[in-house]
Design a protein around this nucleic acid. Structure first.
Lengths: 202, 202
DNA sequence: GTCTATACGCTGATAGAC
DNA sequence: GTCTATCAGCGTATAGAC
Protein backbone atom coordinates (compact mmCIF):
# COMPACT_ATOMS: atom_id res chain seq x y z
CA UNK A 1 0.00 0.00 0.00
CA UNK A 2 1.66 3.14 -1.24
CA UNK A 3 1.19 6.41 0.54
CA UNK A 4 2.40 9.99 0.17
CA UNK A 5 5.73 10.42 1.84
CA UNK A 6 7.95 13.34 2.59
CA UNK A 7 10.22 13.99 -0.40
CA UNK A 8 13.47 12.09 -0.32
CA UNK A 9 16.83 13.77 -0.69
CA UNK A 10 16.93 12.79 -4.34
CA UNK A 11 13.50 14.21 -4.96
CA UNK A 12 14.40 17.46 -3.29
CA UNK A 13 17.56 17.72 -5.26
CA UNK A 14 15.83 16.97 -8.55
CA UNK A 15 13.09 19.48 -7.88
CA UNK A 16 15.71 22.10 -7.10
CA UNK A 17 17.63 21.24 -10.26
CA UNK A 18 14.45 21.52 -12.32
CA UNK A 19 13.54 24.88 -10.84
CA UNK A 20 17.03 26.20 -11.53
CA UNK A 21 16.75 25.03 -15.14
CA UNK A 22 13.25 26.47 -15.38
CA UNK A 23 14.48 29.85 -14.20
CA UNK A 24 17.14 29.82 -16.89
CA UNK A 25 14.71 28.93 -19.67
CA UNK A 26 11.61 30.87 -18.60
CA UNK A 27 13.58 34.05 -17.97
CA UNK A 28 15.08 33.91 -21.43
CA UNK A 29 12.06 32.92 -23.48
CA UNK A 30 9.02 33.80 -21.40
CA UNK A 31 6.37 31.26 -20.45
CA UNK A 32 5.00 30.68 -23.92
CA UNK A 33 8.37 30.68 -25.59
CA UNK A 34 9.87 28.17 -23.18
CA UNK A 35 9.43 24.46 -23.86
CA UNK A 36 9.39 21.58 -21.43
CA UNK A 37 12.06 19.97 -23.58
CA UNK A 38 14.40 22.90 -23.08
CA UNK A 39 13.89 22.79 -19.34
CA UNK A 40 14.38 19.03 -19.24
CA UNK A 41 17.60 19.31 -21.21
CA UNK A 42 18.89 22.11 -19.02
CA UNK A 43 18.10 19.97 -15.98
CA UNK A 44 19.70 16.87 -17.48
CA UNK A 45 16.48 14.87 -17.36
CA UNK A 46 14.16 13.34 -19.89
CA UNK A 47 10.92 15.12 -20.55
CA UNK A 48 8.68 12.44 -19.01
CA UNK A 49 10.93 12.24 -16.02
CA UNK A 50 10.64 15.96 -15.48
CA UNK A 51 6.89 15.66 -15.69
CA UNK A 52 7.06 13.08 -12.96
CA UNK A 53 8.26 15.75 -10.56
CA UNK A 54 5.93 18.47 -11.75
CA UNK A 55 2.58 17.65 -13.30
CA UNK A 56 2.71 20.36 -15.96
CA UNK A 57 4.56 23.28 -17.42
CA UNK A 58 2.21 25.58 -15.54
CA UNK A 59 3.04 23.87 -12.27
CA UNK A 60 6.77 24.39 -12.80
CA UNK A 61 6.21 28.05 -13.48
CA UNK A 62 3.98 28.53 -10.46
CA UNK A 63 6.36 26.72 -8.14
CA UNK A 64 9.22 28.81 -9.46
CA UNK A 65 7.39 32.07 -8.87
CA UNK A 66 6.12 31.34 -5.40
CA UNK A 67 9.58 30.19 -4.38
CA UNK A 68 11.05 33.44 -5.65
CA UNK A 69 8.52 35.86 -4.27
CA UNK A 70 10.04 36.37 -0.83
CA UNK A 71 13.50 36.91 -2.23
CA UNK A 72 12.13 39.33 -4.75
CA UNK A 73 10.23 41.46 -2.24
CA UNK A 74 12.91 41.31 0.45
CA UNK A 75 14.74 44.52 -0.51
CA UNK A 76 11.61 46.61 -0.15
CA UNK A 77 10.51 44.71 2.96
CA UNK A 78 13.80 45.66 4.55
CA UNK A 79 13.23 49.41 4.19
CA UNK A 80 12.99 50.45 7.84
CA UNK A 81 10.37 53.08 8.80
CA UNK A 82 12.49 53.94 11.83
CA UNK A 83 15.76 54.41 10.00
CA UNK A 84 17.13 57.59 8.46
CA UNK A 85 14.87 58.34 5.47
CA UNK A 86 17.54 59.33 2.97
CA UNK A 87 19.80 56.41 3.87
CA UNK A 88 16.94 53.93 3.93
CA UNK A 89 15.81 54.85 0.43
CA UNK A 90 19.32 54.96 -0.95
CA UNK A 91 20.25 51.60 0.47
CA UNK A 92 16.99 50.11 -0.78
CA UNK A 93 17.89 51.37 -4.23
CA UNK A 94 21.39 49.90 -3.96
CA UNK A 95 19.96 46.56 -2.85
CA UNK A 96 17.70 46.57 -5.91
CA UNK A 97 20.68 47.38 -8.12
CA UNK A 98 22.63 44.50 -6.61
CA UNK A 99 19.70 42.18 -7.29
CA UNK A 100 19.81 43.23 -10.94
CA UNK A 101 23.47 42.38 -11.06
CA UNK A 102 23.34 39.18 -9.05
CA UNK A 103 19.94 37.86 -10.11
CA UNK A 104 19.25 39.15 -13.62
CA UNK A 105 17.32 36.04 -14.58
CA UNK A 106 14.85 36.55 -11.77
CA UNK A 107 14.38 40.13 -12.89
CA UNK A 108 13.77 39.13 -16.48
CA UNK A 109 11.39 36.39 -15.39
CA UNK A 110 9.10 38.98 -13.84
CA UNK A 111 9.73 41.50 -16.61
CA UNK A 112 8.68 39.01 -19.27
CA UNK A 113 5.42 38.35 -17.51
CA UNK A 114 4.54 41.94 -16.74
CA UNK A 115 5.31 43.23 -20.22
CA UNK A 116 2.84 40.70 -21.54
CA UNK A 117 0.14 41.89 -19.18
CA UNK A 118 1.07 39.72 -16.19
CA UNK A 119 -1.51 37.05 -17.07
CA UNK A 120 -0.10 34.50 -14.63
CA UNK A 121 1.01 36.76 -11.80
CA UNK A 122 -1.66 39.44 -11.64
CA UNK A 123 -2.94 37.82 -8.44
CA UNK A 124 0.42 38.10 -6.74
CA UNK A 125 0.85 41.69 -7.89
CA UNK A 126 -2.56 42.81 -6.67
CA UNK A 127 -2.23 41.13 -3.26
CA UNK A 128 1.27 40.58 -1.90
CA UNK A 129 3.02 43.31 -3.87
CA UNK A 130 0.16 45.80 -3.58
CA UNK A 131 -0.06 45.42 0.20
CA UNK A 132 3.67 45.90 0.57
CA UNK A 133 3.72 48.89 -1.75
CA UNK A 134 0.80 50.57 -0.03
CA UNK A 135 2.51 50.10 3.32
CA UNK A 136 5.82 51.50 2.16
CA UNK A 137 4.13 54.34 0.27
CA UNK A 138 2.65 55.45 3.60
CA UNK A 139 6.11 55.42 5.14
CA UNK A 140 7.49 57.51 2.28
CA UNK A 141 4.63 59.99 2.59
CA UNK A 142 5.35 60.35 6.31
CA UNK A 143 8.99 61.09 5.62
CA UNK A 144 7.93 63.73 3.11
CA UNK A 145 5.42 65.28 5.51
CA UNK A 146 8.16 65.48 8.11
CA UNK A 147 10.37 67.29 5.62
CA UNK A 148 13.01 64.55 5.70
CA UNK A 149 12.94 64.12 1.92
CA UNK A 150 11.56 66.21 -0.92
CA UNK A 151 7.81 65.87 -1.46
CA UNK A 152 6.73 63.83 -4.47
CA UNK A 153 4.31 61.12 -5.54
CA UNK A 154 5.38 58.04 -3.50
CA UNK A 155 4.34 55.52 -6.14
CA UNK A 156 6.28 57.29 -8.85
CA UNK A 157 9.28 57.34 -6.54
CA UNK A 158 9.07 53.56 -6.17
CA UNK A 159 8.59 53.14 -9.92
CA UNK A 160 11.68 55.22 -10.52
CA UNK A 161 13.75 53.00 -8.25
CA UNK A 162 12.48 49.88 -9.94
CA UNK A 163 12.84 51.07 -13.51
CA UNK A 164 16.29 52.55 -13.09
CA UNK A 165 17.77 49.53 -11.33
CA UNK A 166 15.98 46.73 -13.20
CA UNK A 167 16.83 48.30 -16.54
CA UNK A 168 20.37 46.93 -16.27
CA UNK A 169 19.06 43.39 -15.91
CA UNK A 170 15.97 43.45 -18.11
CA UNK A 171 17.52 45.32 -21.03
CA UNK A 172 20.98 43.88 -20.59
CA UNK A 173 21.19 42.85 -24.25
CA UNK A 174 20.76 46.46 -25.30
CA UNK A 175 23.01 47.85 -22.58
CA UNK A 176 25.80 45.48 -23.59
CA UNK A 177 25.60 46.47 -27.25
CA UNK A 178 25.57 50.19 -26.55
CA UNK A 179 28.38 50.22 -23.99
CA UNK A 180 30.91 48.25 -26.06
CA UNK A 181 31.25 45.61 -23.38
CA UNK A 182 32.05 48.14 -20.66
CA UNK A 183 30.59 46.85 -17.39
CA UNK A 184 27.54 48.99 -16.63
CA UNK A 185 27.72 48.08 -12.96
CA UNK A 186 31.00 49.90 -12.65
CA UNK A 187 29.45 53.34 -12.97
CA UNK A 188 25.82 52.58 -12.09
CA UNK A 189 26.05 52.58 -8.26
CA UNK A 190 27.56 56.05 -8.08
CA UNK A 191 25.42 57.36 -10.93
CA UNK A 192 22.21 56.29 -9.22
CA UNK A 193 23.43 57.32 -5.77
CA UNK A 194 23.97 60.86 -7.02
CA UNK A 195 20.72 60.89 -8.96
CA UNK A 196 18.60 59.87 -5.99
CA UNK A 197 20.44 62.03 -3.50
CA UNK A 198 19.74 65.10 -5.64
CA UNK A 199 16.17 64.00 -6.25
CA UNK A 200 15.38 63.34 -2.60
CA UNK A 201 17.13 66.27 -0.91
CA UNK A 202 14.34 68.48 0.50
CA UNK B 1 2.47 36.57 -68.57
CA UNK B 2 2.29 37.77 -64.99
CA UNK B 3 4.82 40.25 -63.68
CA UNK B 4 5.54 42.05 -60.48
CA UNK B 5 3.45 45.19 -60.23
CA UNK B 6 3.32 48.07 -57.83
CA UNK B 7 0.90 47.22 -54.99
CA UNK B 8 -2.68 48.25 -55.59
CA UNK B 9 -4.66 50.35 -53.14
CA UNK B 10 -6.30 47.22 -51.74
CA UNK B 11 -2.95 45.53 -51.25
CA UNK B 12 -1.57 48.54 -49.49
CA UNK B 13 -4.59 48.75 -47.24
CA UNK B 14 -4.47 45.06 -46.40
CA UNK B 15 -0.78 45.16 -45.62
CA UNK B 16 -1.38 48.12 -43.35
CA UNK B 17 -4.26 46.33 -41.63
CA UNK B 18 -2.10 43.26 -41.11
CA UNK B 19 0.77 45.26 -39.66
CA UNK B 20 -1.61 47.02 -37.28
CA UNK B 21 -2.96 43.64 -36.15
CA UNK B 22 0.56 42.27 -35.89
CA UNK B 23 1.59 45.15 -33.66
CA UNK B 24 -1.32 44.42 -31.38
CA UNK B 25 -0.55 40.71 -31.10
CA UNK B 26 3.26 40.74 -31.12
CA UNK B 27 3.43 43.50 -28.52
CA UNK B 28 1.20 41.56 -26.17
CA UNK B 29 2.62 38.06 -26.58
CA UNK B 30 6.10 38.48 -27.99
CA UNK B 31 7.26 36.83 -31.21
CA UNK B 32 7.15 33.27 -30.00
CA UNK B 33 3.92 33.68 -28.09
CA UNK B 34 2.07 35.27 -30.97
CA UNK B 35 0.37 33.03 -33.54
CA UNK B 36 -0.39 33.74 -37.17
CA UNK B 37 -3.99 32.80 -36.43
CA UNK B 38 -4.29 35.52 -33.83
CA UNK B 39 -2.91 38.10 -36.21
CA UNK B 40 -5.18 36.94 -39.00
CA UNK B 41 -8.22 37.16 -36.75
CA UNK B 42 -7.26 40.59 -35.51
CA UNK B 43 -6.87 41.68 -39.12
CA UNK B 44 -10.15 40.09 -40.18
CA UNK B 45 -8.50 37.74 -42.64
CA UNK B 46 -8.07 34.03 -42.98
CA UNK B 47 -4.69 32.58 -42.17
CA UNK B 48 -3.82 31.59 -45.77
CA UNK B 49 -4.95 34.96 -47.01
CA UNK B 50 -2.66 36.69 -44.57
CA UNK B 51 0.19 34.49 -45.75
CA UNK B 52 -0.56 35.66 -49.25
CA UNK B 53 0.49 39.16 -48.26
CA UNK B 54 3.47 38.15 -46.14
CA UNK B 55 5.37 34.94 -46.83
CA UNK B 56 5.93 34.05 -43.19
CA UNK B 57 5.50 35.02 -39.57
CA UNK B 58 9.09 36.21 -39.58
CA UNK B 59 8.44 38.44 -42.56
CA UNK B 60 5.52 40.12 -40.79
CA UNK B 61 7.65 40.80 -37.78
CA UNK B 62 10.53 42.17 -39.79
CA UNK B 63 8.29 44.44 -41.85
CA UNK B 64 6.66 45.70 -38.69
CA UNK B 65 9.98 46.53 -37.06
CA UNK B 66 11.58 48.26 -40.01
CA UNK B 67 8.46 50.35 -40.49
CA UNK B 68 8.56 51.40 -36.86
CA UNK B 69 12.25 52.13 -36.51
CA UNK B 70 12.23 55.74 -37.69
CA UNK B 71 9.29 56.65 -35.49
CA UNK B 72 10.94 54.97 -32.57
CA UNK B 73 14.26 56.76 -32.93
CA UNK B 74 12.75 60.13 -33.87
CA UNK B 75 12.62 61.61 -30.33
CA UNK B 76 16.35 61.12 -29.82
CA UNK B 77 17.13 62.20 -33.39
CA UNK B 78 15.37 65.46 -32.66
CA UNK B 79 17.65 66.37 -29.75
CA UNK B 80 19.38 69.45 -31.15
CA UNK B 81 23.12 69.92 -30.43
CA UNK B 82 22.67 73.66 -30.93
CA UNK B 83 19.72 74.09 -28.60
CA UNK B 84 19.79 74.88 -24.90
CA UNK B 85 21.18 71.74 -23.22
CA UNK B 86 18.80 71.57 -20.26
CA UNK B 87 15.74 72.25 -22.38
CA UNK B 88 16.83 69.85 -25.12
CA UNK B 89 17.25 66.98 -22.69
CA UNK B 90 14.04 67.75 -20.82
CA UNK B 91 11.97 67.96 -23.97
CA UNK B 92 13.55 64.76 -25.28
CA UNK B 93 12.50 63.10 -22.06
CA UNK B 94 8.97 64.47 -22.37
CA UNK B 95 8.74 63.27 -25.96
CA UNK B 96 9.74 59.81 -24.81
CA UNK B 97 7.11 59.94 -22.09
CA UNK B 98 4.49 60.93 -24.62
CA UNK B 99 5.50 58.01 -26.80
CA UNK B 100 4.95 55.69 -23.84
CA UNK B 101 1.47 57.11 -23.41
CA UNK B 102 0.53 57.30 -27.08
CA UNK B 103 2.35 54.24 -28.42
CA UNK B 104 2.59 51.73 -25.56
CA UNK B 105 2.33 48.77 -27.92
CA UNK B 106 5.37 49.89 -29.86
CA UNK B 107 7.27 50.20 -26.59
CA UNK B 108 6.26 46.74 -25.44
CA UNK B 109 7.12 45.27 -28.83
CA UNK B 110 10.73 46.33 -28.38
CA UNK B 111 10.72 45.54 -24.67
CA UNK B 112 9.59 41.98 -25.32
CA UNK B 113 12.40 41.41 -27.76
CA UNK B 114 15.14 42.98 -25.71
CA UNK B 115 14.20 41.23 -22.47
CA UNK B 116 14.58 37.95 -24.33
CA UNK B 117 18.04 38.88 -25.53
CA UNK B 118 16.99 40.76 -28.67
CA UNK B 119 17.55 37.72 -30.93
CA UNK B 120 15.76 39.26 -33.90
CA UNK B 121 16.77 42.90 -33.53
CA UNK B 122 20.35 42.76 -32.30
CA UNK B 123 21.46 43.90 -35.76
CA UNK B 124 19.32 47.02 -35.60
CA UNK B 125 20.47 47.78 -32.08
CA UNK B 126 24.15 47.44 -32.88
CA UNK B 127 23.99 49.54 -36.04
CA UNK B 128 21.23 52.15 -36.29
CA UNK B 129 20.65 52.59 -32.56
CA UNK B 130 24.32 52.38 -31.63
CA UNK B 131 25.36 55.00 -34.17
CA UNK B 132 22.65 57.36 -32.99
CA UNK B 133 23.50 56.81 -29.33
CA UNK B 134 27.21 57.32 -29.87
CA UNK B 135 26.50 60.55 -31.71
CA UNK B 136 24.18 61.89 -29.03
CA UNK B 137 26.47 60.73 -26.24
CA UNK B 138 29.18 62.96 -27.71
CA UNK B 139 26.76 65.89 -27.67
CA UNK B 140 25.90 65.23 -24.05
CA UNK B 141 29.57 65.02 -23.13
CA UNK B 142 30.20 68.36 -24.81
CA UNK B 143 27.43 69.97 -22.83
CA UNK B 144 28.93 68.57 -19.65
CA UNK B 145 32.42 69.75 -20.56
CA UNK B 146 31.00 73.21 -21.16
CA UNK B 147 29.42 73.12 -17.71
CA UNK B 148 25.91 73.46 -19.11
CA UNK B 149 24.70 70.36 -17.26
CA UNK B 150 26.10 68.32 -14.39
CA UNK B 151 28.84 65.86 -15.39
CA UNK B 152 27.84 62.21 -15.47
CA UNK B 153 28.15 59.09 -17.61
CA UNK B 154 26.29 59.95 -20.86
CA UNK B 155 25.14 56.40 -21.54
CA UNK B 156 23.70 56.03 -18.07
CA UNK B 157 21.91 59.33 -18.53
CA UNK B 158 20.28 58.00 -21.70
CA UNK B 159 19.42 54.72 -19.98
CA UNK B 160 17.77 56.66 -17.17
CA UNK B 161 15.59 58.57 -19.63
CA UNK B 162 14.59 55.37 -21.39
CA UNK B 163 13.90 53.31 -18.30
CA UNK B 164 11.94 55.98 -16.44
CA UNK B 165 9.70 56.85 -19.37
CA UNK B 166 9.23 53.41 -20.90
CA UNK B 167 8.40 51.92 -17.54
CA UNK B 168 4.90 53.36 -17.77
CA UNK B 169 4.27 51.57 -21.06
CA UNK B 170 6.21 48.35 -20.57
CA UNK B 171 5.08 47.65 -17.02
CA UNK B 172 1.65 49.17 -17.43
CA UNK B 173 -0.07 46.07 -16.03
CA UNK B 174 1.84 46.47 -12.76
CA UNK B 175 1.46 50.25 -12.65
CA UNK B 176 -2.30 49.97 -13.11
CA UNK B 177 -2.66 47.46 -10.29
CA UNK B 178 -0.56 49.45 -7.84
CA UNK B 179 -2.12 52.85 -8.54
CA UNK B 180 -5.76 51.76 -8.14
CA UNK B 181 -6.62 52.92 -11.63
CA UNK B 182 -5.23 56.40 -11.07
CA UNK B 183 -3.81 57.65 -14.35
CA UNK B 184 -0.02 57.54 -14.01
CA UNK B 185 0.39 60.09 -16.78
CA UNK B 186 -1.29 62.70 -14.65
CA UNK B 187 1.65 63.05 -12.27
CA UNK B 188 4.45 61.58 -14.38
CA UNK B 189 5.34 64.62 -16.53
CA UNK B 190 5.91 66.91 -13.58
CA UNK B 191 7.52 64.16 -11.50
CA UNK B 192 10.07 63.42 -14.21
CA UNK B 193 10.57 67.08 -15.08
CA UNK B 194 11.55 67.81 -11.48
CA UNK B 195 13.69 64.68 -11.26
CA UNK B 196 15.75 65.47 -14.34
CA UNK B 197 16.01 69.17 -13.62
CA UNK B 198 17.54 68.39 -10.23
CA UNK B 199 19.72 65.69 -11.71
CA UNK B 200 21.06 67.83 -14.55
CA UNK B 201 21.59 71.16 -12.80
CA UNK B 202 25.37 71.70 -12.71
C1' DG C 1 12.09 6.48 -10.60
C1' DT C 2 13.36 6.53 -15.21
C1' DC C 3 12.95 5.24 -19.67
C1' DT C 4 10.64 4.45 -24.71
C1' DA C 5 6.74 5.00 -27.24
C1' DT C 6 2.95 7.42 -28.36
C1' DA C 7 -1.48 10.16 -28.25
C1' DC C 8 -3.16 14.42 -29.68
C1' DG C 9 -3.86 19.33 -30.20
C1' DC C 10 -1.83 23.39 -32.03
C1' DT C 11 1.04 26.04 -35.35
C1' DG C 12 3.24 27.53 -39.56
C1' DA C 13 2.85 26.91 -44.11
C1' DT C 14 1.14 24.95 -48.79
C1' DA C 15 -2.11 23.08 -52.50
C1' DG C 16 -5.61 23.83 -55.25
C1' DA C 17 -10.62 25.13 -56.15
C1' DC C 18 -13.16 29.21 -57.16
C1' DG D 1 -7.29 37.43 -54.19
C1' DT D 2 -9.66 34.63 -51.15
C1' DC D 3 -11.29 30.52 -49.67
C1' DT D 4 -11.36 25.20 -47.85
C1' DA D 5 -8.69 21.45 -47.06
C1' DT D 6 -4.63 19.65 -45.63
C1' DC D 7 0.22 18.53 -44.26
C1' DA D 8 4.36 18.17 -41.50
C1' DG D 9 6.40 19.33 -37.28
C1' DC D 10 6.46 20.69 -32.68
C1' DG D 11 4.83 20.72 -27.90
C1' DT D 12 2.42 19.04 -23.85
C1' DA D 13 1.21 15.27 -21.61
C1' DT D 14 0.30 10.19 -20.74
C1' DA D 15 0.82 4.95 -20.93
C1' DG D 16 3.27 1.35 -19.82
C1' DA D 17 7.71 -1.40 -19.80
C1' DC D 18 11.64 -2.00 -16.93
Amino acid sequence: MTEKRAPTRIQKKNRATILEAALEVFSQHGFRGATVDQIANAAGLSKPNLLYYFPSKDAIFTALLSGLLDTWLAPLQAMDPNGDPMEEILSYMQRKLQMSRDFPRESRLFANEIVQGAPRILDILSTDLKDLVDEKARVLRQWMDQGKIAPMHPHHLLFSIWSLTQHYADFDAQVQVLMDGEDPYEAAPEFLETLFRRMLTP
